[in-house]
Amino acid sequence: MNPKLTTPARGDSRPANAIFRRRPAATTLAMLAVVIALPLVVPSATLACEILIFAMAVLGCNLLLGYTGLLSFGQAIFFGSGAYVAALAMIHWQVGLFTALLLAAAAGGLLALLVGALAIRRTGIYFVMLTLALTQMAYFIAYTLSDWTGGDNGLLDVPRPPVAIGGFTLFDLESPLAFYGLVAVLFVFLYLGARRVIDSAFGSTLLAIRENEARAAAVGYDTRHFKILAFALSGAVTGLAGALYAMLLNFAPLSNIELPMSEQILIMTIIGGTGSLFGSLLGAGTIVILGDLLSALWPRWMLLLGVALIAVVMFMRGGLWGGLESLGRRRAGAARKTQEDA
């Protein structure tokens, strides 16, 4: 193949870690501010919950796409199975809130381990195609097991148990705002956790794999292990998000485990900014709010997502976060210039 046509445009992908190495504390504070302000700003607490839940799923997707360079269409598998596992455990075994969430994370992580181990047997586009085909497979499994999943009708009457310790109820989560409290606390923990993972030896190696997998292998890393672990972590976070989503809706629809769910999570990741944790919040927020505003006015608003996706790839590869960043840089540059002039 013509190298001109196939070599990645190096200059286009910025060192994703550089931003955060510079000011991680500032972005963490910004994240906290957003999480606190969100229910006050958006029309309803339910919508605020939805934003943070999808932001969690995007954190998971970002670990794969932004930090490891793995484009996975498999996220719906983990999201959907997290929703089903938590819902089924609560319905059939009457497990409590935290057990349900833990089970969902475990299911998502385990499935991601399997999906990852299978898909990374191939690289490049074959890898991507495999993740997509495996999502289709998961969809058909969920569809076939309709006795458990409710098939097309979805799983109804998913409870939202209270926060309880040893049978003693601490908080009731029935009100949307109370549930937002739980989601927000979990999100902050996951965000800080993701930050730690990225700053770890493991996280630094993921970036190396994203940059140049052949060289990473040549300096001694068994890249398969890293990719599979990245998958497992991503799947666990995404499964947890799926469980919260089922609790939010009191319902686990089949669409949770369909390909469009993977696409939606991917689109949020890209529009927010790949390789940026704060971008996860931006991407999920933008799309969820846009969907809420537009879907009532114009049911075909998804068309805009297609356009936005193309526009971002063509003109703003860093996504919203990248846009904000270059704006900030230009400002800083201008400020420095005026100082020098003075």
């Binding site: 730690r196 993972v197 770890s200 030896a201 493991f202 996280g203």
Partner: peptide
Amino acid sequence: AQGTAGWRALDFWRRL
């Protein structure tokens, strides 16, 4: 340098 660390490079929790 870290490439020789083997399994220890999979440590995803402790800081660098």
